[in-house]
Design a binder for these strands. Structure first.
Lengths: 268, 268
DNA sequence: ATACAACCTAACGTTACTGTAGGTGCAAGA
DNA sequence: TCTTGCACCTACAGTAACGTTAGGTTGTAT
């Protein structure tokens, strides 16, 4: 059987067969005069072995070691279990990304255009959700973390949509004075939402969800900036430096003037 | 920010940053004298965008097109849906392979050593199960195919274990005369098993599961060898030519002498 | 004799990097 | 001032598993 027929019979391209020959994986006889490769029925079987192991995810190098022997012993089971682990990890990664994609599609379906920085922030926030959770367990009780993350898809969606809108507003309002009515309104809405999601009544209560911390002031400045850097690694802020500085300013103003009063302010 | 600090802050290796610069994905400022790269805060954001899109499965080339614009429109949704499809396919492939691996481990757990040809045959049979099913629908009614493949894991396992044992026996018995008692015994057991799985009472009834076929003789020789070749593409026989020829022979002998009688032969 | 298919080797292209060699810029210590 | 050492630079090579192309040879039909 010449290479063309063999290729058709097995469905493996001629170039791949050349390559396997070159790599010593499948070395057929050769016509010593013409140099043409001559494949036998045994080669069909050997190629099939190669393809099967490839389907299980082994590299050609691993395969060439494996096919030297004509039978497998129990060490194959160990090797299979390793493959299994690898594939399960791959699958989980894909699963995470699929969820992210689904949520992203839902998120932007209502919009006609989305600022790419904001969107990327949100996407990577979804993508790294699991890592964020594990990281958060350093500071909070496990069940607190759980209650924060184990919310329905709709809740998450609501949060993401609100965040998207909030950042959009920030980019629109940047530069306005801290006591601007619209600015105050946007901040109020967002803070209210945060408190709703955290399920606390006021900012003071937020400290309750951290372990071993009496108040926000327990964090030193160094600690805070270290924390910020770590958070940035997960999800960098989609705001420019100016936007961020402006936001810090108006937020400080807002908290000083309204934070502990807005609960009662219900008829606006 | 020089490249070292930037690399630490973002977790991306220096070499990769060089690469992104080279490819035009992330081109920081350069000190015109020393040639050192100078990264800004905006670059942090841009790199983050790149990493996010990479996590969604886009290639660097696609990414470099995508990051030219500062906002996304609805075409992103189409693109995300395409990614989604691709990832779903990948996931399914992995899933299939995982099932195959699990079954393979179970299959060989009882054995101390397995002939690699036989094992490869069985593995690829599991791996291509779906394709086999679709192929089989050319010849059988959909519900017949379904009833053949929609059996419990244990049933499948039983079949595979039996097949493994059968091939092992063949390789042990090859060369013995067709009327050898042991040979007859092995064939009988295997045929009985086949009929059990096909849920038919005799070989004549097998034709009932094919559509538009009155008897096996309806197939011409060409058709049969074409069929065989197609089956070989899924799962080549783990037998050598001699073993296969010997098996054909003893099977022919067995069918002629016993096939239609063994149903009654219950006290052996 | 010639056309043509089928084969050959050899070398480059692909993707997303990593590794290495050899050289420059800049600060601190001997 | 010289040297050491670190951070940085460019440029070239290598990885997996092939695909593609070029240029040349073999075998067969006309």
């Amino acid at each position: 059987m010449l290479i063309g027929e063999f290729s058709k019979r097995t469905g493996v391209s001629i170039r791949t067969l050349h390559y396997y020959d070159e790599k010593g994986l499948l070395k057929p006889e050769k016509n010593p005069i013409s140099g043409h490769r001559i494949y036998s029925d045994r080669d069909v079987m050997n190629l099939h072995k190669i393809m099967t192991l490839k389907a299980l995810g082994y590299t050609l190098e691993q395969i060439s070691e494996m096919i030297r022997e004509s039978s497998f012993d129990m060490s194959l089971v160990d090797s299979l279990r390793m493959q299994q682990k690898k594939l399960e990890q791959d699958k989980e990664d894909i699963e995470t990304t699929l969820v992210t994609i689904r949520r992203t599609i839902l998120l932007i379906e209502g919009e006609k255009e989305v600022n790419s920085n904001i969107l990327m922030s949100l996407i990577s926030s979804m993508q790294t959700e699991k890592a964020q959770r594990e990281w958060a367990e350093q500071f909070m009780e496990k069940d607190v973390v759980e209650s924060l993350y184990e919310v329905s898809e709709e809740e998450k969606m609501k949060w993401e949509k609100a965040t998207l809108q909030f950042y959009k507003e920030i980019k629109r309002l940047v530069g306005k004075p801290a006591n601007d009515e619209e600015v105050m309104h946007v901040l109020k809405e967002y803070f209210t939402l945060i408190l709703t999601f955290l399920d606390v009544a006021s900012f003071d209560d937020i400290t309750n969800i951290f372990t071993g911390i009496e108040s926000i002031e327990d964090f030193s400045d160094e600690e805070l900036s270290k924390l910020e850097a770590e958070v940035e690694k997960f999800v960098p802020s989609p705001l420019t430096k100016e936007e961020q500085e402006w936001l810090d300013e108006v937020m400080a103003y807002y908290i000083e003037n309204q934070a502990f009063g807005f609960q009662t302010d219900e008829n606006e």
